[in-house]
Structure formats: C-alpha cells, structure tokens
Write a protein that binds this DNA or RNA. Structure first.
Lengths: 117, 117
DNA sequence: ACAAGTACCGAAAAAATTTTCGGTATATGA
DNA sequence: TCATATACCGAAAATTTTTTCGGTACTTGT
C-alpha cells in the first residue's frame, strides 16, 4: 500500500479499530504536533518531524483527513498554501496520546538501559 | 522480521516507545485477554483470538516476554505445558488499552457506516 | 497403529508500510 | 538566470510485519 489503504480501518473489534487509526509510525506524533497549534502548514509539520520522510507525512496526513481526525484547508494561492488542523474527533484521541506519552516518559530509562547499544 | 525485531523498541521519543511496544496487530488484544485471567496457556490464547495465525501469537508473545510485558512459565512436563501472565509492567499499560477500547466502542458506529462495504 | 493435542520453531511467501527518487507547477529573491 | 521555496503525486525500492507451511517431540485416547 502506498497512498491508500486496502482496508482503511480495522472493524473486527473496537480495540483494533482505535489502534488502526493511530498505529502507523508517525500518526501519533502528527496528532501530538497538531494539538499544539491552531493549524500547521505541511512544511511546518515536516520541520517538526525531520526524521520522517516528507512523502510519508503526506500519505499519513491524507489518511487522517480521510478518517476525520484532521481537517485540511487549501488556499487557492500561488505558491500553494494549505493548512492542517486537528478535528474534534482527533481531539477525542488526545487522552490516549497523553496516556502513551506519560507512560513512555515514565518508563523510558528502563528501555534505554535494556536495549540501547 | 520474523521472530526477532531488528530494532526491539523505538527509543526516538517516549510516545513512539509506547507505541512500538503495542502497535502490532495482536499485542493489544493479547494484553486485553491476559488481563482477564490469572494465567493462560498458549492454546487458550489461540482459541480466544482465532483470527490470528498461531505462529504470530507465538512471535508476539515472545516479544512481549522480551519487553517485560508478559511473563512465561514453562512446566517441565510431557506433554509440554506453559503459561503466560501479564506482568506489573504490562498492567501499567492497561489504562491505555482501556482508553483505546472505550474510544473504539464509542466511535464504532461512525466508522462502520463510513467504511463498511 | 494412528489421529489428535500440546508447545515450539525455521523458512519462505505474502502483504503492508515506509522510504527514496524523480517529476509537476508557480513564485520569490539573489 | 538560477537556486529555493511552496505543495503535491506516482512509481519503485527497501523494509517490516504477518501468514502459511512443514517439521520436531512426546502423550493420550480410539
């Protein structure tokens, strides 16, 4: 799959539904970035997540727009301008992102010692 | 990757660390199953998650044992017997699983209408 | 004797995801 | 004029994950 998912989301069970919306490599980070600003332009998002290939962010942002987690506004200008912002549905996932972030911070050292080098 | 991860967990940021521990197709379901019993034998887990190929559960259980989320006891008996149980570290992830499960239940209908058929 | 169950594992195929590369188009600043 | 920036997209390569298949070894029940 490149820019469109064969099976958009996992409808087999509620837990996997939620997972399937955020379990790609960068989606949770994108949500975490978008929460911080009213809106962000693609180039800003790329700068905030420099380790992600720009193409992946494009693809994952598009999927998140399709899923309703993120809204996109295209301004009919040249050079082109567009903006992404988190939707109410996307915001409703933030408690989950928060819980994961908190857990990660609390247990980071253990896994660093365990797996680093 | 087949039965061992090249990069065991993602240490780039706390959020991705947490994600990397549970973001495979069945790990969150395994945790959700294991929470319900004191312990489970592999064959029981397979029966509870019939859609997952047994080999995948083996592999993912092994990774979860390596990561410390699940503990395994092997009984030196014949025919062989072993048991998996969730560890304290694994239990500390349950609030995240709960939040995802709750979100999934609350938003299931929307995505069913949106993507089914 | 033989099928079925128990737990496990390697190899390879299949599927999905991520990354890289090159390309479109227009505008601005040096 | 030329490099840079904006946003986007397709194709293919690379990587990772999931699945399938076949095999080990031993026991119980028919």
């Amino acid at each position: 799959m490149a820019y469109e998912k064969k099976i958009p989301v996992d409808l087999d069970c509620p837990l996997r539904l939620t997972m399937s919306l955020i379990d790609s490599k960068w989606k949770s980070c994108i949500l975490d970035e978008l929460r911080g600003s009213e809106s962000m332009r693609p180039s800003e998002i790329h700068k905030c997540l420099p380790e992600a290939a720009p193409r992946v962010l494009d693809i994952q942002l598009k999927q998140m727009v399709d899923d309703g987690l993120v809204a996109k506004t295209i301004f009919p200008e040249l050079p082109p301008r567009s903006e992404y912002r988190i939707t109410e549905l996307g915001k409703s996932l933030l408690p989950i992102i928060d819980a994961m972030l908190k857990w990660g911070v609390e247990h980071y050292d253990v896994f660093l010692k365990k797996y680093q080098k």
